[in-house]
């Protein structure tokens, strides 16, 4: 049973890591508590659903298209809501509040339009076969999704470490003022970061919707709390930290449910969060910063 539980933990952890990738990027670079992130996740899944069911796309072609659609939505929302606040150097609280209002409006509009029913992709869109290795069982779909997550993480790390764009983004994350002086157009860079984060959210929505076979407007909102835990424990803006924290959280939840009590499965995530913050205030892997805001 232990081997299977470890696999369960890794699979769950991968979904947390996937959700947190774009979230931590948005947070770490744009320095904004953007509560609309979960909406891009839902939007990606719903667009993919529409592409597959109505336009007859295959799931692997629908995935990038839906991801880009979510990215575009993210750029538009960011531009509409936050440009003004950013140029006015408004306090953190204002952006929190504005995205809070936007979340309420966006989700309500989406449910008013589509209803809150769960929808599913056609059952034959991905193979249902399973591999049995000893006492461990994984489905082909789960492995494919795990592979996709690994590719997304690698691509993101390459983008940030190996390209000029990545350099600019990292400069912005570290010292926004200096970046501006060095001739980086921060408005354009903000749009690009929003786009990448939105794409990652959208891709996450498609993959997780696929794995759980359930897509509904509030699916992103339901990931938000866990998402916060992961990006805080991993350290804001820290991609590697988010992946590790996501995996650890997945394993911890599964082990708690499997060996302690399933009643504590949800609470344990938050307990860990609080303990980590009490002992290591800038995340498990974060550097100690003088200002932690």
């Amino acid at each position: 049973m232990l081997a299977q539980q470890l696999v369960n933990g890794v699979l769950l952890g991968a979904t947390y890591a996937l959700f947190a990738l774009g979230f931590t990027l948005m947070f770490g670079v744009l320095k904004v508590i953007n509560l609309t992130y979960g909406f891009y996740f839902s939007a990606g899944a719903l667009v993919a659903l529409w592409l597959v069911r109505t336009l007859g796309f295959g799931i692997w072609t629908a995935l990038p298209v839906a991801a880009m659609a979510a990215g575009l939505i993210a750029v538009v929302v960011d531009w509409l809501l936050l440009t003004r606040l950013r140029s006015a150097k408004a306090p953190e609280l204002a952006s929190l509040m504005v995205t809070l209002g936007a979340v309420l409006a966006l989700y309500s509009a989406l449910t008013a339009w589509l209803g809150s029913d769960i929808r599913r992709l056609p059952p034959d869109v991905i193979s249902g076969e399973a591999l049995q290795i000893g006492s461990v069982r994984v489905t082909l779909a789960q492995l494919l999704i795990l592979g996709a997550v690994a590719i997304l993480i690698a691509a993101l790390i390459w983008l940030l470490r190996g390209t000029k764009l990545g350099l600019a983004i990292r400069a912005m994350a570290d010292r926004p003022d200096a970046a501006e002086l060095m001739g980086i157009n921060t408005l354009r860079a903000a749009a690009i970061v929003s786009f990448i984060s939105g794409c990652l959210a959208g891709a996450g929505g498609v993959l997780i919707g696929l794995q759980r076979n359930a897509i509904q407007p509030y699916m992103g909102e339901e990931m938000m709390l866990r998402g916060f835990v992961v990006i805080i424990v991993g350290g804001l803006g820290d991609i590697r930290g988010a992946v590790i924290a996501g995996m650890l959280l997945g394993l911890l939840e599964v082990m708690t449910a499997g060996y302690v009590s399933s009643n504590l499965k949800e609470a344990v995530a938050f307990l860990v969060l609080v303990v980590v913050l009490w002992t290591r205030p800038s995340g498990l892997f974060g550097r100690a910063m003088t200002r932690r805001a």
Binding site: I33, F270, L271, V274, L277, W278, P281, R292
Partner: peptide, 21 residues
């Protein structure tokens, strides 16, 4: 000792722990 987002999330986390209780 925490501030900003960290404080916000820590206090939300405590609320969730109480909910579990």
């Amino acid at each position: 000792r925490l501030s900003g987002v960290y404080l916000a999330i820590a206090t939300i986390g405590l609320g969730e722990v109480l909910r579990a209780v």
